[in-house]
């Protein structure tokens, strides 16, 4: 279970998170939606210690982690796999070495086990056989999936995904979203997905959180959100509800 209590994050004189409270239950798929620049990615980065909050607490499975040192964060980062908005693959390494990078550091594995883990995680994202390619030789959608494979290779209990489908066409978008859904269920992870895609959130999320101006304006199951009276949520939903009404 993950819990944010009164989380505050400032950049210079700009306050991005304004005392945010949020509880995420084990095993659920949570979507975090909201307007651009409202601190959704910042939330994820605080969780794994890439950014430090200015105030507030972060609890992960009964541990308060916000004051942890870089060393203390190691087990947390093994537990919480993060998939970045950019594919963030290492350009000079092959796909195999990209995926093996984390395995070699986080897990004690023999070369053979590493090999197996790499090919298994590539299979999970339906990309077998590209081990020896360099990232630049793959399409953007494929790079995104290698990035996902690199993270799930560490068998994280918690999967954090930052804007997985921004800039992708509708077909690739749905394929990636479907993949995240299937992997979360298959690997029984708690998943937090930051996204702009309300349709997808309604389709696959257990719970949705909508953020605006550094705080949560509404949260609930997809069905609860559909009935929301919060203006921003209604705005997000308007086109979808309209389309559904047409059909």
């Amino acid at each position: 279970m993950i819990e944010f209590k009164g989380l505050v994050k400032r950049f210079g004189d700009r306050t991005v998170l304004k005392g945010l409270d949020l509880t995420i239950n084990g095993g659920e798929i949570l979507f975090v939606l909201g307007t651009s620049g409202t601190g959704k990615s910042v939330l994820l980065k605080n969780l794994v210690g890439l950014l430090k909050p200015d105030a507030g607490q972060i609890w992960i499975d009964g541990e308060e982690v916000s004051a942890f040192s870089e060393e203390q964060y190691l087990p947390i980062r093994k537990k919480c796999g993060m998939v970045f908005q950019h594919p963030a693959l290492f350009d000079s390494l092959t796909v195999f070495d990209n995926i093996a990078f984390g395995i070699r550091r986080h897990l004690q594995c023999t070369a053979k086990e590493t090999q197996q883990k790499v090919s298994h995680s590539l299979k999970l994202v339906n990309l077998s056989g590209v081990e020896q390619k360099l990232p630049a030789q793959l399409s953007y959608g494929m790079q995104k999936r290698v990035s996902l494979a690199r993270t799930i290779a560490l068998e994280p209990k918690i999967l954090l995904v930052d804007e997985p489908t921004t800039g992708l066409d509708p077909v690739t978008t749905n394929a990636i979203n479907q993949l995240i859904f299937e992997l979360s269920r298959k690997l029984k992870t708690t998943s937090i997905v930051v996204s702009h895609d309300m349709q997808c959130a309604l389709d696959i999320a257990d719970r949705i959180v909508v953020m605006d101006q550094g705080n949560i304006v509404d949260q609930g199951t997809p069905d609860e959100l559909r009935k929301s009276t919060v203006p921003l949520v209604k705005d997000f939903l308007s086109e979808i509800l309209q389309k559904e009404a047409e059909q």
Partner: peptide
Amino acid sequence: EQIDAIRCLG
């Protein structure tokens, strides 16, 4: 974000 990724990968 490659530097962030390195930190996350331990």
